[in-house]
Lab assay of single mutants.
Amino acid sequence: HAATELTPEQAAALKPYDRIVITGRFNAIGDAVSAVSRRADEEGAASFYVVDTSEFGNSGNWRVVADVYKA
């Protein structure tokens, strides 16, 4: 099962156990969220919340930071 994305309210009520950072070329924010979901799932997380997204220069590469939560 894939890790689910939390709302800001849900994330605020929970304590993350880790923070992950992924970088890559994403065509849309949805693609980045899917990549975070896969990584969170690999780490055994039940859910995640994207904290920050930023573009690296003009290369089209993105850096996505997310907190991950157990259950």
Rank of each mutant, 00 (worst) to 15 (best):
A35R: 01
K70I: 07
I22L: 08
A11N: 02
G24S: 03
E43I: 15
E43Y: 15
V33P: 00
Y69V: 01
I29D: 05
Q10V: 08
Q10L: 07
E5Y: 06
A35C: 10
S37M: 11
V36H: 02
T7Y: 04
D31Q: 07
R38P: 02
N27Y: 11
A3S: 08
T53W: 15
D31Y: 05
E55A: 09
P8E: 12
E55V: 12
L6R: 02
N27Q: 12
A40H: 01
E55D: 07
W62I: 09
D52V: 10
L14P: 02
P16C: 07
A40Y: 03
V68W: 04
R63Y: 11
V36Q: 02
P16T: 03
A28H: 14
V64D: 02
S37F: 07
L6K: 01
I20A: 00
I20M: 06
R25S: 12
G44L: 03
S47Y: 15
Q10G: 06
T53I: 15
D18S: 13
T23W: 12
A12G: 07
R25H: 12
K15D: 07
D18E: 08
R25Q: 12
D41H: 15
Y49V: 08
S47N: 06
F56K: 06
T53A: 15
R63L: 13
S59L: 10
L14Y: 07
N58Q: 12
Q10M: 07
V36L: 10
S47A: 15
T7I: 05
A32G: 03
G60V: 06
R39W: 11
L6W: 01
V51I: 11
S37R: 15
T7S: 10
W62H: 03
I20R: 00
A2M: 13
A40V: 06
A71I: 13
A46H: 14
D67Q: 05
I29F: 11
R39L: 12
Q10P: 02
T7Q: 05
G30K: 14
G44V: 04
L14R: 10
S34W: 09
R38H: 11
V36T: 04
A11V: 04
A40R: 02
N58L: 11
T53N: 06
S34A: 15
A32F: 07
R39G: 02
P8W: 14
G60Y: 05
W62K: 04
P8G: 11
E42S: 08
D67Y: 14
K15Q: 12
T53L: 15
S47T: 05
E43C: 13
F56V: 12
S47F: 15
A3L: 07
Y17D: 03
E5A: 10
R19H: 02
S34M: 14
V51F: 04
A71P: 11
V33R: 06
V65L: 05
